[in-house]
Nucleic acid binder design. Structure first.
Length: 349
DNA sequence: TCTGGGGTCCTAGGACCC
DNA sequence: TCTGGGGTCCTAGGACCC
């Protein structure tokens, strides 16, 4: 066997729920739902549902209230982000400990691994075994000849995948089986095409990956934008970035936002909250030593209409007073005084 | 289904400049 | 003066992802 470059996509199974079950083993086998403050009557959404909860139709992103209706017997737990961050770091350290691999972290619970190997399935199994041994967490690994295919392959590796040959913890998706596995699926199965774009494509007669792949990129460029149009066609053809990048990520922005349990009706309170959010952001970017060049404010009025305003600062700053003043200036550009559901402040570098 | 919080990138129009 | 063309920055919004 000859060695070649492979992309592996490592994705922890039901990460937040699995971490909580490790802390409280008596929860094993029970439907566990992690999200918000763990109170299903509050304004919050599900961050992760255990497989048992998913069997009742609970999904991430679903309002906690809805989850409670679908699965009243579930154990609801608050999201403990600092802990998940710590556990995630342990997992990433296990990946980085493999010799001659490049690791690109995509979130708490997933990462790409680039490696030169003759046997990517063996490497995938080694990774799964090492992660399990060192962290007691299970993961699935997608194997691909680029990042797009590796990422999509993971879904077929996951426990319970109905794909023939799938569900076994690893799955390989390359140019060799792309058409067989993907061509008849809806365009939304692709990583980067959501509900809105899938509908736009369907309006143009493109419902399957096969149809998208056969489209002239120039036609979609004129229609859906010079970058996005051709990119969608590339997605349909299974084309994506081939090399995993190990260089550390430099954030472009840093922000905080809050949804209030009760809408705010007094504009003086809105101003107070915006100033507080700006100081939170200032603390973050001050700690990172990166001054903000722009400040943005987001306001979501009840029931759910969202607007943003922003401005470029005269000079970049990390000063909390300056950032709070700038955020309040930007806030003044909102003229509506309807009840406010959410406020956010963001710094751009 | 009464819809979190953290982000990224793209698009398009207008301002402004040469 | 009825009027070019290119480039860049600013801003708001949209879509997507974890």
């Amino acid at each position: 066997m000859t060695s070649q470059y492979w992309v592996l996509h490592v994705d922890l199974d039901q990460f937040l729920a699995a971490v909580e079950i490790l802390r409280r083993p008596e929860l094993a086998g029970r439907p566990v739902i992690v999200g918000g403050k763990g109170d299903p009557t509050q304004r919050a959404v599900v961050a992760t549902a255990s497989y048992e909860a998913r069997r009742h139709g609970v999904r991430s992103g679903m309002p906690m209230r809805t989850a409670a209706k679908r699965c009243p017997d579930a154990v609801f737990l608050p999201a403990d982000n600092p802990h998940y961050e710590e556990v995630s770091e342990e997992v990433m350290a296990v990946l980085r400990a493999f010799p001659d691999v490049v690791v690109e972290v995509m979130g708490w619970d997933e990462a790409f691994v680039g490696a030169e190997t003759a046997d990517p399935e063996a490497l995938a199994q080694d990774i799964r075994a090492a992660v399990l041994a060192k962290t007691r967490l299970h993961c699935s690994v997608g194997i691909g000849d680029n990042m797009l295919r590796a990422k999509l392959a993971t879904e077929f590796a996951k426990p319970g995948s109905p794909e023939p040959g799938g569900g076994g913890g690893t799955f390989r998706l390359t140019g060799a089986n792309w058409v067989e596995v993907m061509a008849d699926r809806p365009t939304q199965a692709l990583w980067g095409i959501g509900a809105k774009t899938a509908r736009k494509l369907a309006d143009r007669g493109l419902t399957t990956v096969r149809e998208l792949a056969a489209t002239d990129p120039a036609v979609l460029a004129a229609d859906l934008g010079p970058a996005m149009g051709p990119w969608y066609v590339q997605l349909g053809r299974g084309i994506g970035r081939a090399r995993v990048e190990g260089t550390p990520w430099v954030p472009r922005s840093r922000g905080h936002e809050t949804t209030f349990q009760e809408n705010i009706t007094d504009w003086a309170d809105v101003r107070t909250e915006v100033a507080a959010l700006a100081r939170l952001v200032a603390a973050d970017i001050g700690g990172e030593g990166r001054p903000a060049a722009r400040v943005g404010v987001k306001v979501r009025f009840a029931p759910f209409s969202t607007y943003t305003r922003s401005k470029t600062l005269d000079a970049p700053t990390t000063d909390p007073d300056e950032l709070a003043t700038a955020a309040l200036d930007v806030l003044e550009r909102f003229t509506s005084r309807r009840p406010v559901r959410l406020l956010g402040v963001k710094a751009e570098f």
